[in-house]
Amino acid sequence: MSTFLITLIVVAIVIAAMAIGVMFGRKPIAGSCGGIGSLGLDCEFGCKKPCSKRQARMEAAKAEQQH
């Protein structure tokens, strides 16, 4: 039982530390390969009207493909 309690306390401390880091403006945890955004699929799943930054990236990608 003591092993379980120690493990629970350690996990709670780690989660609290990560939350505090995010609250103070540190970059959130991200995957090492960039996640689904690196595949170009991040806006295809329900994003009907992309934000202006995404629209600019999409237009730049189209222009680059045409050249």
Rank of each mutant, 00 (worst) to 15 (best):
K27F: 05
K53A: 12
D42W: 00
K48E: 14
I20G: 04
I13A: 14
G34L: 02
S2T: 15
A63D: 06
C51G: 09
I29D: 02
K48M: 15
K53G: 13
S2F: 08
V14D: 04
K53L: 12
G37Q: 05
K62N: 00
C47R: 06
F45I: 13
S52D: 15
A12P: 02
T3W: 10
R54P: 03
G40S: 04
P50L: 10
G21K: 14
A61C: 06
A16H: 02
V11N: 05
Q65D: 07
M23I: 06
M18I: 12
G46Y: 07
G40R: 03
A17K: 06
G31K: 10
A56C: 10
A12I: 08
P28C: 04
R57M: 14
G21T: 08
C43N: 11
A61L: 11
K27Y: 05
C33V: 03
Q55V: 14
K27H: 07
V11C: 05
G21F: 10
C51R: 09
E59T: 11
F24K: 07
D42Y: 03
E44Q: 13
A30G: 06
A63Q: 10
A19Q: 07
C33A: 12
G21P: 00
A12H: 02
V22A: 11
A60P: 00
C43W: 11
F24D: 05
E59L: 08
M58Y: 06
V10F: 03
C47K: 11
K27D: 09
G31I: 02
E64M: 00
A63L: 06
Q66A: 14
L39V: 00
K53D: 06
V11F: 09
A17F: 12
S52A: 15
E64Y: 00
A16T: 06
G25R: 08
G34D: 00
L5W: 07
I20R: 02
M1R: 09
S38T: 05
